[in-house]
Every structure is written in structure tokens, then in C-alpha cells.
Design a protein around this nucleic acid. Structure first.
Lengths: 203, 203
DNA sequence: AGATCATATGACAAGACTGACATATTCGAA
DNA sequence: TTCGAATATGTCAGTCTTGTCATATGATCT
């Protein structure tokens, strides 16, 4: 899995392990991440498998780096993988796992955790918006591009933003429901429910 | 991580490894999953750590099973974990990782994959709706419950549904954008964009 | 009679991932 | 001049996770 993420980036431009790590930050982080120890190890394995070749690039100052480029074998492996039907993999979400047992903690704490999580996702959303803005400044309206790399990149970015937005909204909604629950209110909130997301969507 | 998922379920009711696996299917699958080999191994480790105790329960027919119950130490560990602030973990999404490099495959194939993925998420959403319906048949309107276990359960279920809905919508939207892109259209679609999710939300 | 399904448990290999430790250089700031 | 930050690379231990193979039993279907 990780090796395909690496191949995708190297296919655009040969990079060293360190540069690769930085590229992850700016694009693939949306849906994949890895730390440097993982990346360096994987690069060596991939070289052994003939998917990439490394070449040493000396520097005046700074340590010599090894820049990796995709081989034709690597490119084939990447395309082959891209054409496979992806299977639907399960979500793993620590916050939700906790939420599932929040009846075991004091209600204020549960609510504080929801609020905290909302903030984290909000922040992440804002980072993504910043990245979007940068791309737009450089390339204009993303969806009007003729560049297929940029086009798919944009779709991915939108997906990542949708995800964060959904999460933020859910947190907000959950906190409101929880307040009602704690107060023991039933009917007062009912009229309002038609106007929030779950009133519309959950039917 | 897995051990807390297990503790959450055992805290409600002592279960054998096999039953635990089945419980995962019905509730925690929304945001965590594990196969049986993982569960059995973890249960043994947890018993060694004193978080659970197993007791053999013989059967007339069927092999004897070992039912595990949470110890007070296990319960403490669970609550302690629940009260920690959860850190925001990165998403890992194979489909999106592929999407990022879809410029390398023929456009029809990319689109077919999006459509296929949309269907998978649609199906998952329908499963969740079925589960929701079952819960409602048994307990009435979920958000009006006085049962805190059920309440949090419902919030989690709604989150899972929101997630699937978001994904389905994004796939639909992405396919439409991609058709425009392939056709080389720019302006024709512009008026319509104000009415779809990204016209509204991405600003 | 034979096949298959559901219950019930486990071993094992391989891969993925985290986090801490370790090292070396150069630049710029305090 | 000392400190930290950025560049650049690696090891290692331990954990988590996946997937496959293996083994039983009894029930039910054909």
C-alpha cells in the first residue's frame, strides 16, 4: 500500500526520502501518511524489487542525498494496481470508538471531547482550504483546468474537505442532541429537528 | 486500541471470542473491525494483563467455549482510556490514494471505478439504515430515548451514515465533474454548479 | 451418503506502523 | 558562541493487522 503512494509521487518527479516525506505533507496526507522511518525502509525494499532506482546526489553543504526514480517495472506495477477494483475497507476511528462507550464517562466530559474534536476537524478543514487557495492562486479555478493531474488532485482535495465538513457538522449536531438528552427534553427540540441535517438526511 | 473495543463490548455483556466477533459486525464495525484470529489473540493477552477473565462453558453439542468477562481492572483501564483526549488520526483511504493518480489510467476506467465505489458506499449506507430501522422497531425514536447506552449508540450510527452519504455524494459529484472534464466543457456546467454541494460548501 | 453450513478456536507468516534513538551538517538568530 | 531549526538518513523494538491454513462438532440439506 505505502509503496504505491510512494510510486505515485515519484512518478511525477524523482525525490529523496526526505523530500518524499515533505510531499506527503502537501498532498497525499489527505488520505495516507507515513513517517520517515517507514519511507526509508520501503524505498530500500522497493529498490530491491526493482520498482525504483536510487542515485546519490552530493551537495556542497548538507549530507549527500539519494534520489529515487521510478523504473519501467515500477510504473507498470503502479498502473496495474490502479486498475484493480478497490475493495471497500473499514473505517478506523478512535474518536467514534470512544463515543460508543461515552455512557461510562461524566456527560460534561463526553461533551468536552466532542467539542474538542470538532475544533480539530475545523482546523484541518481550514488547512485544506488554505491548500485549495494556494492551488487556485497558481492555477485558477481548479475544476476548469485542462491538466488531468491537477484535476484529479482537486477532486481528492474536495473529498478531504467534504470529510472534514461532515465531521464538524456531526460534532455540532451531536453536542446539541446531547444537551437535549442531558436536560431530559423531548418535545421542545422537535420542531427544530426538521431543519438540521439528520432531520433531512436520516429519513 | 483493539483491546478497548473489546472491553467496550464485554463491559455490556460477557462473551466468547466467537460471539465477540459477531457483535463487532452489528455495532462497532462502523468504525473498527477485527478478524477472529486477532480477537482470540488479544483476549489471551488481555487475560494475562488481568483486564478480563475467561471461564469455560461446556455445551451438549458444539465445542466448549470460553466466555470472557471484564475485571474491575479492565473497567478502570477502559474508563481511563475513554477520558483521554483523542488525538486526530490521519485518514487512510485506498480509493482516494488511487484517485490521486487516475490520470495514469484511461478515463473510462477511472469513471467506472468511481461508479463502483459509489455503489459500495450506497450499499453500506443501506445496511446502516437497516440497522437503524431494527433499533427503532425495538426502541422507538432513537434520539428520544432515556437510555444513555442506546443514545450514544445512535449518535455513532448517525455518524457512520453521514460518512457513507458524504462518500456517495462525492462520487456522484466527481463523476459529473469528470464527464465535463473529458468533454472539454467549461462554461455550460457553470450555472449548475451553484446548486451542487461544492458550489455551496467550498467557498 | 455426502456436502455444506454454523459454531468454536487457534497457529503462523507477512506486512504495516509507531515511536524512540542516533548521527551529521549548515544556517540564522539570540 | 551557543542554541535551535531545517536538511538528510538510518536502526531497532515492539505492536498492530491481515490473511491463510487447520481442526473439531453437529445440523441440515440434497
Amino acid at each position: 500500500m505505502l509503496r504505491f503512494a510512494i510510486l505515485e509521487l515519484l512518478e511525477r518527479k524523482p525525490l529523496s526520502g526526505y523530500e518524499l516525506k515533505r510531499r506527503f505533507q502537501g498532498s497525499i496526507v489527505f488520505f495516507w501518511r507515513a513517517n520517515h522511518s517507514q519511507i526509508y525502509r520501503e524505498l530500500k525494499l522497493m529498490e530491491k524489487d526493482g520498482l525504483v532506482v536510487g542515485s546519490k546526489v552530493p551537495h556542497d553543504w548538507r549530507p549527500t542525498k539519494t534520489v529515487y526514480a521510478v523504473t519501467s517495472k515500477g510504473r507498470e506495477a503502479l498502473v496495474e494496481w490502479l486498475r484493480e477494483k478497490p475493495k471497500l475497507r473499514g473505517v478506523k476511528d478512535e474518536m467514534m470508538l470512544k463515543c460508543f462507550a461515552f455512557h461510562l464517562v461524566p456527560p460534561e466530559e463526553a461533551e468536552a471531547q466532542l467539542a474538542h474534536h470538532q475544533k480539530l476537524h475545523q482546523q484541518r478543514l481550514e488547512e485544506y482550504l488554505k491548500i485549495k487557495k494556494q492551488l487556485e492562486d497558481r492555477h485558477g479555478q481548479l475544476l476548469e483546468t485542462r491538466d488531468s493531474i491537477l484535476f484529479w488532485n482537486a477532486l481528492c482535495l474536495y473529498q478531504a474537505m467534504d470529510h472534514e465538513r461532515m465531521y464538524v457538522e456531526w460534532c455540532r449536531w451531536a453536542i446539541a442532541r446531547h444537551k437535549e438528552f442531558s436536560a431530559g427534553n423531548r418535545p421542545a427540540a422537535r420542531d427544530g429537528r426538521e431543519n438540521d441535517s439528520h432531520g433531512k438526511l436520516a429519513g
